[in-house]
């Protein structure tokens, strides 16, 4: 049930129209940062105000929303944003990647391949890939305009000079359709290959920096590298300890002060689905599952006004 004090999805219709215009321009010019009049949102900058505004502009009442934070459905950021849209838009929510029509994400692309018709909304802290090399906005705009991207390689050069390899492991710069160099938001570089040729529409919103950019479906996205130091999509060299998956991106969890640790899928939906299908990892039958915990707590802390 929608909270009637607010317009559908919190923002007023004129604002959503303005954001949609920026999104359309972004889709038309893949990788180009479109300025937009970012609004004050009822959450602090850095908590996904850009992503929330893009999601609000995309949502229709028939949508099914999934929100993830570092791949997880049940972390603070994901829970609060999901609750926000349940309350202000009354849309259905889901944790299953394949069932969602709009997915707002912070720092991950879901493991399950996306399909046509889905929209993936990224929360972006710093949209400008050249920012830390060239602090002047006027200059970086000129560099984008004139396609002067040599500086991006200076950053990768510095990595190799200092660490012996390209040590940038997240927010790894990409070139979109052979034109604009883009910051894919701080997703691990493991996810970079999923940016290109993806069937879903990928939208990026930076609230504080007031920029929206987009990667339309089936767009070419290339991670920058050197001929003799090619791009490698790296992950921890382990299998998931809960579901045994070897091909998913892993979080390292320290379990005591004796140096014990476990590796678990960062994508909780992917992991839980596999466990339900009977897969299990090094730690055997799972002792907990985020879904089960969420279900057991449903009666106590479900969002106000949510009807199941």
């Amino acid at each position: 049930m929608t909270d009637q004090a607010y317009n559908f999805a919190y923002l007023d219709e004129q604002t959503k129209r303005m954001i949609r215009r920026a999104i359309l321009k972004g889709v038309a010019v893949p990788g180009y940062q479109v300025p937009f009049a970012s609004r004050e949102m009822p959450m602090p900058y850095g908590w996904g105000t850009g992503g929330v505004q893009v999601t609000a502009a995309c949502l229709v009442p028939e949508d099914r929303l999934k929100v993830i934070d570092q791949g997880a459905d049940d972390t603070t950021n994901a829970v609060s944003i999901r609750k926000f849209f349940q309350r202000t838009a009354g849309v259905e929510v889901t944790e299953a990647t394949a069932e969602a029509t709009v997915i707002q994400t912070r720092h991950r692309i879901p493991e399950t391949a996306l399909s046509e018709g889905q929209i993936l909304v990224y929360q972006v802290p710093i949209p400008e890939p050249l920012r830390f090399l060239e602090p002047r906005e006027t200059e970086t705009r000129k560099m984008h305009e004139l396609e002067e991207y040599g500086l991006m390689h200076v950053k990768l050069y510095e990595d190799i000079a200092r660490h012996g390899e390209i040590a940038t492991s997240y927010a790894y710069p990409v070139k979109v359709e052979g034109r604009y160099v883009m910051d894919p938001s701080p997703i691990p570089k493991f996810d970079n290959p999923k940016l290109g040729g993806n069937a879903a529409i990928q939208l990026f919103g930076a609230g504080r920096e007031q920029r929206i950019y987009a990667v339309p479906p089936y767009t070419q996205v290339v991670s920058l590298d050197f001929d003799d130091h090619p791009f490698v999509a790296s992950k921890a060299p382990h299998d998931c300890d809960l579901c045994g998956a070897s091909e998913s991106y892993l979080d390292e969890v320290i379990t005591d002060d004796q140096g014990s640790r476990m590796y678990v899928c960062s994508d909780t939906d992917f992991c839980a689905t596999r466990q339900e299908a009977g897969h299990h990892g090094r730690l055997g039958v799972p002792q907990f599952s985020s879904k089960k915990i969420a279900k057991s707590l449903e009666g106590f802390c479900a969002a106000e006004g949510v009807t199941e």
């Binding site: 040599g150 500086l151 200076v154 001929d227």
Partner: peptide
């Protein structure tokens, strides 16, 4: 190296 990379040098 910056000027080399700016004119297309891509071999570290």
């Amino acid at each position: 190296g910056e000027r080399l990379m700016a004119i297309g040098g891509r071999h570290y």
